[in-house]
Each structure stands twice: as C-alpha cells, then as structure tokens.
C-alpha cells in the first residue's frame, strides 16, 4: 500500500498596520510503498509484468511570500508582492530489481538522488592531438577533435562505469514578482516569474554543434574543430559518431535559469457623462521579454523539449465598458 506522511508548518504574518504582510511554509512529505513495475527477464515470456509496492521517496521544501502595501497621498496606491519557493526530492528506497529501469548503475545507484538528477559522463574539452589521445585513458572512438570523457573511476578505460551524477534539473529556487499600482485614474500592473540556479540540457547544442547525417545542422558546425581551429568546443565534424558524442554528458548541460516578464498592463479610467457608468481603456502585453543565460542557445528557456512551439508575444488593446 502506498502511504504518505506529510508535515506542513506555516505562518502568516502582517505588521505595520498590515502594510507588510506575508507567509512562510515548510513542508516535508515521505511516501513509502510507491507502485512500481519491475522489469522482467525476457526469458519469462509475455504477460509477466506486475506492479509492486516498492519505492520510497521524500520531498522537502519551503515557500516564502512577502508583500508591501503602500500609498502616497490619496492619488498613489501600490502593492508589491514577491514569492520564492525551493524544493528537493530524494529517492530513499528502490528495490534492486527495478534499479536498472532508473538512472544510475551498479556502483552509483539513484538511492539518495532525485529523480530529476542527471546521470552521465563528465567531459574535459576536446582532444587536441594524437599525443593527447594517447596520454588519456583508453576511449573507444577517441581522436583529435573528439570530446574527451573523464575517467571517474580511474581504471584507465572510459566505459559505462565512468558515469556519475552530473547535475539536477531542479532549480535552486522558483520565484515570482508582482506590482500593482494606481495613480489617479491610471493603473498599472506588472508580473514576472522565473527560476534561478537551474541547469539542464540544451537540445539546440545537439543540433548546433554536432553533425548529423539525417537532419540539417546549425551554424555552430562552422566552428568545428580542425587542427587549425582548436579554440572551440565544437567537435571535429564527422558523419560517423564513433565516439558516441550524443551520450548524456555535461557537454550539453548549461545554465537554464531564466526570468520572464509575463504580463504588463496599463489602464486608464474615465467616467463618462452618459450611457456608460464607467469606461476603462487599457493596453496589455504578454511575454514581453525574458532573460536567460548566453550559453543557453534555444530561443525559449521554458520549452526544454526538442520541438518547442514558442510562446508568442501578445499585445492586447481594449476598452472595458460598464453600463
């Protein structure tokens, strides 16, 4: 049976005549007996898979929200709120026979790691010469201009046992900011949110930096390694990926933090003499701009899959009329 034990501690606060307000929440959740379907040896034939209660995990996190209500005279009123959350999960128990279905290997299991952690190879730039290749641990597919993988277990061979935990796709924090302000008949509101301290894969690197026989490639390949062009992180161009460079490695991991200004609104209220009781003219923009790390090549940091349909920028103008 799947069981969850949860503790939530929280406090709401307000002081200075409710001008400053906010809340803080801390939660921990332990789930045991999570249903999982262990892989079955092929020799047993069809219809043998069954779900069992086996895994346990824990989640911990906190949420903080604070706001300020302010005014100056009778004309200006404003309201600022900010929130920030942090969360980590950890797999604490996983039966041995299901571990092959998860990230990790025999030496380095997922126990104690998050399901969002990344398991793969560490890289150390590109091989610059044949001498460089020969001095390095044996790596099948190595050659000048090829990605150099790190021999984690120091056995002189690069193989699957050199994989390790190379990062997590969980952010250090997610946050949001909001400002609402009115000045006489004018009102303005701004809302933005983002994630901080996050890394992950940039699928564009695969298409921009690596040659692929099947698809078009990005302009990054013009900067491919050659004996003359060694100051680059783009491997030598090849149609044959003998080095297995598409494998999960920190080569593809970049800072994926971002901040997006999601919505901004500007309005003006007028009180007409007849017909309408109130009229508000407003303009609104969605997704006006965002910031992201330069090393992250994909256009939209929020869309981390391969076929990102970009979130459009939207501009709206309108009139609210009340009778």
């Amino acid at each position: 049976m799947e069981t969850t034990d949860e503790i939530n501690v929280g406090t709401d606060f307000a002081f200075l005549n409710n001008k400053v307000f906010g809340s803080f929440d801390y939660f921990t959740r332990k789930t045991t007996g999570i249903l999982i379907t262990p892989p079955v040896a092929a020799t047993l034939g069809e219809g043998q898979t069954k779900a069992v209660n086996g895994a346990s995990k824990s989640n911990k996190g906190w949420e903080f929200m604070a706001g300020y209500r302010g005014s100056a005279g009778n004309d200006l009123k404003y309201n600022i709120t900010a929130n920030i959350t942090h969360f980590r999960d950890k797999i604490t128990e996983l039966p041995e026979n299901v571990r092959p279905a998860y990230a990790g290997n025999i030496d380095n299991t997922i126990i104690g790691h998050s399901q969002f952690d990344i398991f793969g190879y560490k890289t150390d730039g590109l091989f610059q010469s044949q001498a460089d290749v020969e001095a390095a641990p044996t790596q099948i597919g190595a050659g000048p201009g090829r990605i150099k993988y790190v021999d984690i277990n120091d056995d002189g061979v690069i193989n699957s046992f050199d994989q390790t935990w190379i990062g997590t796709t969980l952010p250090a924090a997610e946050y949001g900011l909001r400002l609402d302000m009115t000045y006489k008949k004018l009102d303005i509101s701004v809302f933005g949110s983002g994630v901080a301290g996050r890394e992950g894969f940039d699928v564009y690197t695969v298409f921009n930096n690596l040659m692929r026989g099947r698809e078009n490639v990005g302009p990054g390949v013009f900067n491919g390694w050659t004996p003359q062009n060694t100051d680059t992180n783009v491997p030598a161009l090849t149609l044959k990926d003998n080095n297995g460079e598409g494998r999960t490695s920190d080569y593809f991991i970049v800072n994926t933090s971002y901040f997006k200004l999601r919505n901004i609104q500007l309005g003006y209220n007028i009180t007409p003499k007849a017909i309408f009781s109130n009229l508000r003219i407003y303009g609104m923009a969605d997704n006006l701009f965002w910031t992201k790390s330069k090393s992250y090549l994909s256009p939209d940091p929020e869309r981390i899959d391969l076929d990102p349909v970009p979130i459009p920028k939207t501009f709206t103008f309108g009139i609210n009329a009340s009778f």
Binding site: G141, R212, G213, L239, K240, D241, N242, G244, R247
Partner: peptide
C-alpha cells in the same frame, strides 16, 4: 536518411557495439 537514421543499424554495420 544518413548514418544517424536508426543509428543502431549503423552501429551494427560497423561492428561498433559500444553504443550505450
């Protein structure tokens, strides 16, 4: 469509079975 299209066959064709 090129060597990467169903890369497993390409690996078999080249006796390159190190693909993870």
């Amino acid at each position: 469509g090129g060597t990467g299209d169903v890369g497993e066959i390409d690996a078999l064709e080249h006796y390159n079975l190190v693909q993870p």
